[in-house]
Structure formats: C-alpha cells, structure tokens
Design a protein around this nucleic acid. Structure first.
Lengths: 200, 200
DNA sequence: AAAAATCGGAAACATTTGGTTGACTTTCAC
DNA sequence: GTGAAAGTCAACCAAATGTTTCCGATTTTT
C-alpha cells in the first residue's frame, strides 16, 4: 500500500460514503468534507488513487467512482521450488516469495507457489516453466489438479480421481501412464487454483 | 540477514506503523520516533534495509516504503476487456485495473490486460477465459503472439509471421485458418508477455 | 591499534504532494 | 435547447517529503 496520508484519508472517506449512501460522492462533497476549497486538489487525489489501482472512474460521468473490486489486493506467498512428475519438490535455497494478485490467490486457506518442470500436465495447458498457485488442503474433488505426496517420498502434480479404495493420479499427457495406488499411499498436499506464465 | 540492532528497530517500527496506519511513515516521522535529529541517518538505514531486500522504495516518492514481504513489485494496469479471434475488443464500460506482479509485467513500456475469448490460441496453451498481459508496441518478432488490428476494425489475438510484403496471422488451433493480409492492413498493437489463469 | 563500517548532526537541494483560482467541457433533467 | 450540476484541466504556489553532501563520533572487525 503506497498511499500518502491524505490519499488514504480520501480513499477511506469514499469507502465509507459509498457504504452509507449506496452511491459515490461528488468531488465537491469530498472537498467539503475535508474543508478544501479546491476541486482540483480532489481531482488529483482521485487521479493518484486511480493510477495506483484503488478505484475507477468514467470520464466526465457524475458520481462514477467505483472502488476497485480487486482492491489492489496482493499477497506474497512462498515460492517453494519446482514440482515435476515423479520427483520430490526440490527445496529451494532461499525460500523466496512471489506477490500474487488477489484474484489468483486461494479463496480460503494458505497458498504457495511452485514452478512446473516437464510437460506432464500439457493437456491441461500447464507448461514447463509455468508457475502454479497451490491452495494448501488435504482433500480434493475428482478431476482437480493436485500436488500429491506418494509414499511420503515423491511429490507430483497430477489430476486426481478416487476409485474406491484406490486413487488414480492421471497426468494430462497421452504419453505418460496414470499411477493407480492404494489411497493410504497418497497424501494430497494442495490443489492448483491458478497458473501464471511468463514468455521469454 | 545481518541487520544491526538499529536497523532491526527501524524495520520493526515501519512494520508496525504500516499495520496501524495503512500507509508508510515519512523519514521525519521515523526520526522523531527514535529521537534522532538526522534524516540522513534514517535515509542510510533505509538504504541498508533496501539493499538487503527488506523493503522497497520509489525514488522521490512520499511514503513509498513497502515491506518486501508484502506486494513487492506489483502494478495495477488497465483491464480493457475481451479479445477473440476476429472480433474487435469489446470496449468495457469503466476500464478496471488488475494488479500484476512485476515478473509478469512487460519489461519496457506500458501494458494492459485482456481476457481471452475462444480457443483460437489453444495450442499455445492459452485458454478461453485466460488473462493475457500485453506489452504495448507496434512491432513484433516472427512467431510472437500479438494483438493485431486489421483494417482498423477487428482486433484479434494471433501468432505473427511476416512474409514479404504480407503478414500471416496464424491461430494456434488446427481447425482455424490463418489470415494472410497485405502488411498495410495490419497494425500491431501489442505482444503477449504473460498469461494468468484462474481455475473455477 | 588500525581500518572499516556504522551512526548521528546539520544544512542545502530536488521532487512530489497538496492546495488555490479560474476557465472550460460534459452530462442530464427539464 | 437551456441551465445547473459535476467533472476536467492548466498555471501557479506552498508545504511536505525525500535526497545528497560534508563532517565528526562511535562501534565493529581485522
């Protein structure tokens, strides 16, 4: 949050105003509230808040301020390292973090980031080198892409299908075979909630 | 890593201040809190903390300290709307913004976000509903995925191949035909630099 | 003990932020 | 259409804040 005191005050006022009234304040009302005689001062504050991503306006439209639905919400979550088919997570030397925008974060619970090695999920359009955001949890619905720990040894990224007392871990790649294991040998560590890819 | 006692005190103070107030302290406020008369001392502490990776600042910007563990490099860039094969960008009423982590931002120049409609880039592993970050520029290298404006009318997302005086705009989807056009009819608006996908 | 790093003070300087005034434009209800 | 309400914008100024330099004291390391 890199706002100045004044900018945060203005933002707070707008937030409260919209909550109370259901519509956004005019610039004059904002100015009046702060005892400022100048609309331009407010205008520039709104500009600043807009470029920083805290709100949106329609040009020339009266009372068109909307608070950013994404609230510039960002959280830094740990980047643990690589995950590949059939390999343990290679612990990374200095556990970095990566800032992730709110829309791509897990809705509930904690999360972390892994970088994908290999093309085992290629048919799910997850590529070698992609970053996947994982929601930490121990259960998954059939068909979800999970980080699974097998025999307390190997961590893999696969699609999850329970089959009676067994579990099928299915790569999304024709050329790779599914693993079918007793449920007791598989522990789910998390579920993929989003994918981020950088070209070049 | 190896912070001095003082540096840790300063860092702790900043952390608490941001938690309490929602914005970062000015150097004067930090100095006042420690009973120090020198802004330079604070400045150097901040320098030290920054080079050691505990925080980030924008040069010359008031109250621009951000703790590293928070959203380090994140910028809110406009979310213009949808792009599909052969359709103009549907101008969105009030352009929202979406915060994007620095590693996924264009390295040079401005950027914006579009949401992909349709499966025309599916073989590039860009799916219906994915968000693509676009670097605004007017040239592209062969094979890059570009946002192209055809005849000043239609905007499409395609792979770009110049062929003499012509341009081939190639969907990454077997079932779709490439467009081959005189270079004069095609204007490149930007190049895809990253892809973000949210499941569910 | 010497050298290097760190810490603190004071002042000058540069940039950004916050504010004023006033003219202009757009939107919208009548 | 017309006019009021609301938003846009330029020029200009003041205040707040961040940057830098010069200097000396203190602490840590070698």
């Amino acid at each position: 949050m890199k706002l100045t005191r004044r900018q945060k005050e203005v933002l707070d006022f707008i937030t409260r105003f919209i909550e109370d009234n259901g519509y956004s304040p005019s610039m004059e009302e904002i100015a009046a509230h702060f005892g400022i005689a100048s609309l331009n001062a407010i205008f520039k504050h709104l500009d600043a808040l807009e470029t920083r991503g805290y709100l949106h306006r329609d040009a020339n439209r009266a009372r068109s301020i909307q608070l950013a639905s994404y609230g510039a919400g960002v959280e830094a979550i740990p980047l643990y390292g690589y995950v590949a088919a059939g390999r343990p997570i290679e612990a990374i030397a200095s556990p970095e973090t990566m800032p992730i925008p709110e829309p791509f974060l897990p809705k509930g619970g904690k999360g972390y980031v892994l970088q994908v090695r290999g093309d085992s999920m290629i048919e799910e359009h997850i590529r070698d080198g992609d970053y996947v955001v994982i929601e930490s949890r121990e259960t998954a619905r059939p068909g979800e892409t999970v980080v699974a720990l097998v025999d307390n040894e190997n961590v893999t990224l696969k699609k999850f299908y329970p089959e009676g007392g067994r579990v099928r871990l299915q790569p999304a790649n024709e050329t790779l075979e599914p693993m079918i294991l007793d449920a007791g040998r598989v522990r789910i560590q998390g579920v993929v909630v989003s994918v981020l890819r950088r070209y070049h």
